[in-house]
């Protein structure tokens, strides 16, 4: 019925205990979606940077931003739009050693990645790219029989 838009939102908060649950609780309590969420302290400050990948119609997105603002420990909320920002996400994929190392290496390289580890039984490939390209990579890697996939959330920053 409504037009769902994907949106990446950066939130800078005071780095204190409980902030993550305030944000997660806000999304859960008001029925908003979280595709992914990453958080880490901003070095040499008292702040943390959250990157939240979410979706909703225009009204919902507007509310998400306003409700985030309303949380007392939140300093800044930035809605990333168009190509005014850089976003990256990362994925690790564990593949059987029997698969072609060079094929996988080539594939990973084309998605800004590499072979991160080669062990007795498994190869681990790593890529770092935009969310949609990581998705494409995960499609492409399917035919090499991945055993396990670990995907990070998005991190984003304004240009």
């Amino acid at each position: 019925m409504s037009n769902t838009i994907r949106r990446v939102i950066s939130v800078v908060t005071v780095n204190e205990h409980g902030v993550l649950s305030r944000i997660a609780g806000l999304f859960a309590g008001r029925g908003y979606n979280i595709e992914s969420l990453t958080v880490a302290p901003i070095p040499e400050t008292e702040y943390s940077h959250f990157t939240i990948d979410t979706e909703g119609d225009k009204k919902v997105l507007e509310q998400i931003v306003k409700q985030l603002h309303k949380l007392i420990p939140v300093l800044r909320v930035t809605e990333h739009a168009g190509d005014e920002y850089v976003e990256k996400e990362m994925a690790l994929v564990k593949l059987p050693i029997a698969e072609s190392l060079s094929d996988i290496d080539a594939l990973a390289r084309s998605y800004n990645g590499c072979i991160a580890n080669v062990g007795e039984d498994y190869i681990i490939a790593m890529v770092t790219d935009s969310s949609s390209r990581v998705r494409n990579f995960l499609k492409a890697i399917k035919k090499y029989n991945p055993k396990e996939i670990a995907r990070s959330g998005v991190v984003a920053i304004e240009r």
Partner: peptide, 8 residues
Amino acid sequence: VDPSSIGK
């Protein structure tokens, strides 16, 4: 006074 009230 609460921006989130507006347009909700």
